[in-house]
Amino acid sequence: MTVDAHHHVWDLSVRDQEWIAGPELQPLRRNFTLTDLAPEARAAGVDRTVLVQTVTVPEETPEFLALAAAHELVAGVVGWTDLTRPDVADELARLRELPGGRYLKGIRHQVQGEPDPEWLLRPDVRRGLAAVAEAGLVYDLIVLPHQLSACVRAAASLPGLTFVLDHLGKPPVASGAPEAWACDIRALGELPNTVCKVSGLVTEMDPALWGGTTWPLAPLRPYWDTALEAFGPGRLMFGSDWPVCTVAATYAQVSSLVGGLASDLSRDERAQLFETTATRVYDL
């Protein structure tokens, strides 16, 4: 079986998703629910998922925990809380006492939207990250390539916290200039408390390639090879990034694409990528 370590849901009648802007993202301006996801996930052999935050509002995480408690598909939640609040440790404890609180596995903040490339290194943020570690949770990194060097320093300074890099750090697939990204990925991979999600790649590709029934592996191969070399199969995990991926590919196509990239792995290594790494890291 397979674990999908990264997907989202939202209901626009509950709150807007302000990041869904521009004509290329218009297909996402509707509700996406677990009822929509379940048949596609099952068809791809997925039996457990990790539901990941989308917006930085405190109400979303309790809602996601309740969803996890009500749906057997969701085995874990990566939520959000303000890492800079002085009582962040108490807030994490409160979240874990809510209905479904046992499903809280990690915390994420939209660092990619922070103007300060070294936001992760701020003293108030590092204090919050230390509280995440103390709570036994992991921290998901959603960053842009120019923020990766700060990720390396943050992970090095907090060896007791597991950092999970989402979407391979959004590599510059479309522009084809991987050198700086690759250097930082290798540095991050040298740290034993880091893991990387093979997710979000189809939306980093040249839009001219979108919409076909099959996906060319060649544009992604250098980025996959770099991540595999840096982290090894035991620290990589599959994520669909559904429904964001649907602007470029179906759930089945994303699953097939990652399977194609991983075609040279052994059976045990593929099991790590598609199941056991996520199960271990997120304590599913």
Rank of each mutant, 00 (worst) to 15 (best):
P145K: 07
P145G: 09
H146N: 10
Q147H: 05
Q147V: 10
L148R: 03
L148E: 05
S149C: 04
S149W: 02
S149L: 01
V152T: 13
R153G: 00
R153Y: 01
R153I: 02
R153P: 04
R153L: 08
R153K: 13
A154I: 03
A154G: 07
A154M: 10
A154C: 12
A156H: 06
A156Y: 02
S157I: 01
S157H: 03
S157D: 15
L158P: 09
L158I: 15
L158F: 03
P159T: 07
P159W: 12
G160P: 11
T162P: 02
F163I: 11
F163H: 08
F163R: 10
L165N: 00
L165V: 06
L165H: 01
D166S: 02
D166R: 02
H167T: 03
H167S: 03
H167R: 02
G169E: 07
K170T: 05
P172C: 12
V173D: 03
V173I: 15
A174W: 09
A174K: 14
S175M: 05
S175F: 00
S175H: 07
S175D: 13
A177S: 14
A177E: 15
A177D: 15
P178A: 08
P178M: 09
E179N: 11
E179V: 13
A180N: 06
A180P: 04
